[in-house]
Simulated scan of single mutants.
Amino acid sequence: MYSIGEVVLYGSNGVCEITEITTKKIGKDSIEYYVLKPVCSDSSTLFVPTQNEMLVSRMRVVLSSDEIKDILSQKTDNEIWIDNKAERCEKIKEIISGGDCMKLVELIRRMHFHSKLQLKKGRRLHITDERFLKEAEKMVCDEVSVVLHIDRNDVLPLVLAG
């Protein structure tokens, strides 16, 4: 169970603060919700039913400063790329929905490496890959900027340095 004031990563919505835990009556049922406010954007308030295991599983407390620094210091084997588009999309969806910062950082690094290779051939990343890359970058950049207290625009160079 999470508490009011905790800062969590909630899937691709990024870093959010739990501003309250409230109960809303829907029909005859009373349902308890976590009320999440995104920290890095002014987007709408999110309501996550506390009893919905699938949705709550998309929430996790943000990492510590030391955990972030450890992840950023690790090297990534950028050569690993899944050529089959359908397989790649499934794997990327799995990584993004899992919200594991280390896997997201590895994904971002690999996709940037692959993008550079494509540019050398006069090509670009597939539009689907670009969309996934932006989503992964948002999740990581939001979390790293909040935890390390640095500007969001300074995060991607740190991620790609590994």
Rank of each mutant, 00 (worst) to 15 (best):
M1T: 08
M1P: 10
G5Y: 10
G5F: 03
E6W: 07
E6R: 12
V7N: 12
V8A: 02
Y10H: 10
Y10A: 03
G11M: 14
S12I: 00
S12Q: 15
S12R: 15
N13K: 14
N13I: 10
V15C: 05
V15N: 02
E17H: 04
T19M: 12
T19R: 02
E20F: 13
T23C: 15
T23N: 11
K24N: 10
I26G: 11
I26E: 10
D29M: 07
S30M: 08
E32T: 11
E32H: 05
V35W: 09
C40N: 07
S41K: 03
S43Y: 08
S43H: 08
T45V: 15
L46N: 13
P49Y: 13
T50N: 11
Q51N: 15
Q51Y: 09
E53A: 08
M54F: 14
L55A: 05
L55R: 04
V56T: 09
V56W: 01
V61P: 12
V62L: 13
V62G: 00
V62T: 06
L63C: 02
S64N: 14
S65V: 05
D66W: 08
D66Y: 07
E67H: 07
E67P: 13
I68K: 03
D70W: 03
D70S: 10
D70L: 10
S73W: 10
Q74A: 11
Q74G: 10
T76W: 01
T76Y: 09
D77H: 05
D77K: 10
D77R: 00
N78E: 09
D83V: 14
D83K: 12
D83S: 15
N84F: 09
N84T: 02
K85I: 11
K85N: 14
K91C: 06
K93N: 15
E94Q: 09
E94Y: 11
I95D: 00
S97Y: 07
D100N: 06
C101F: 03
V105T: 07
E106A: 02
L107W: 08
I108S: 03
I108T: 02
R110M: 12
M111S: 05
F113I: 01
F113K: 00
F113T: 06
H114C: 06
L117C: 03
L117R: 08
L117Q: 12
Q118I: 00
L119E: 15
K120V: 06
K121H: 12
R123Q: 14
R123S: 06
H126C: 05
E130R: 11
R131K: 14
F132E: 07
F132Q: 10
F132K: 05
L133V: 02
A136Q: 06
E137H: 01
K138N: 11
K138M: 06
M139F: 04
V140W: 00
C141N: 02
C141D: 03
D142T: 01
E143I: 01
V144N: 05
S145L: 02
S145F: 09
V146W: 07
V146K: 01
V147S: 04
V147G: 02
L148M: 08
I150L: 11
I150C: 11
D151N: 14
R152K: 14
R152Q: 13
N153S: 14
N153F: 06
N153G: 12
D154W: 04
V155K: 00
V155S: 01
L156W: 07
L156H: 02
P157G: 06
L158T: 06
L158C: 08
G162T: 04
